[in-house]
Computed example of a mutant assay.
Amino acid sequence: MKVGILALQGAVTEHIRSIELAGAKGVAVKRIEELDDIQGLIIPGGESTTIGKLMRKYGFIEAIRKFSAAGKPIFGTCAGLIVLAARIEGQDEAHLELMDMTVVRNAFGRQRESFETDLDIKGIDERVRAVFIRAPLIRDVGHQVEILATHQDEIVTARQGNLLVSSFHPELTDDYRLHQFFVNMVEDSQA
């Protein structure tokens, strides 16, 4: 089973490492035709506006929408969460508009306000170490979205069908259990 990491910006190598620890093959995806060879996709952190522009430039918007419509799982971390959102607070236009949620960019502050904490995530037995770097938060969700984790009463991890998002960077720790959760989603989608 192959999980692709959208390699336009962000911690691609770290996501590949975490996916491989979770038992799947991780591959960098740089061209839309490479989506045909994978069963799941991770949209990593970075800068959401830049990622959105690059996705439009290289034809990824419609290609990823089709990938999702085919039932293939997508995991957005940090900026990837913003890219998946239907609504971005303070912006007229979103990017993929796949997940029924409103997000707030840089909600936890600037770079110097970055922090780490342990989170209880629904579906994972023990607390997960979470690294927040200029992290977004999920302001509100539609009724099909399941909230998996909160921090200080703010939504930071959620799932809607084949879509998974986290405000934090799970790839920046040695704890690959959220990637394992995603790999399990990919396996279930293949059954």
Rank of each mutant, 00 (worst) to 15 (best):
T77R: 07
K66C: 08
V128S: 02
V103G: 08
H15G: 11
F67G: 09
S48P: 14
F67W: 08
V103T: 09
G161N: 11
A191L: 10
G109N: 07
I138S: 06
G76F: 05
E154H: 04
L148D: 01
A149Q: 10
S114W: 13
F115H: 10
L119H: 02
L8C: 09
V103E: 06
V27W: 05
V29R: 03
I82V: 14
R177W: 06
S114A: 15
S114N: 14
Q190A: 14
I43A: 03
N184S: 13
R87V: 09
A7C: 06
L148G: 02
Q91C: 13
P73Y: 00
F108R: 02
R110F: 08
M99F: 09
R105M: 07
A70K: 15
G90Y: 05
A85K: 02
R31T: 15
V128M: 04
H95L: 08
G76V: 05
I16K: 00
Q111Y: 07
V104Q: 04
G26D: 07
Q180G: 15
I16T: 00
G161I: 01
R110S: 13
L178P: 06
E47S: 03
R129G: 12
T50G: 12
Q190I: 12
M101V: 14
V186M: 00
Q152E: 15
L164E: 10
D174S: 14
G123P: 11
K72G: 00
K66W: 05
I43F: 05
L35C: 12
Y58S: 04
I155H: 07
P44R: 11
G71R: 10
T117D: 08
T117H: 06
R56A: 15
A70I: 07
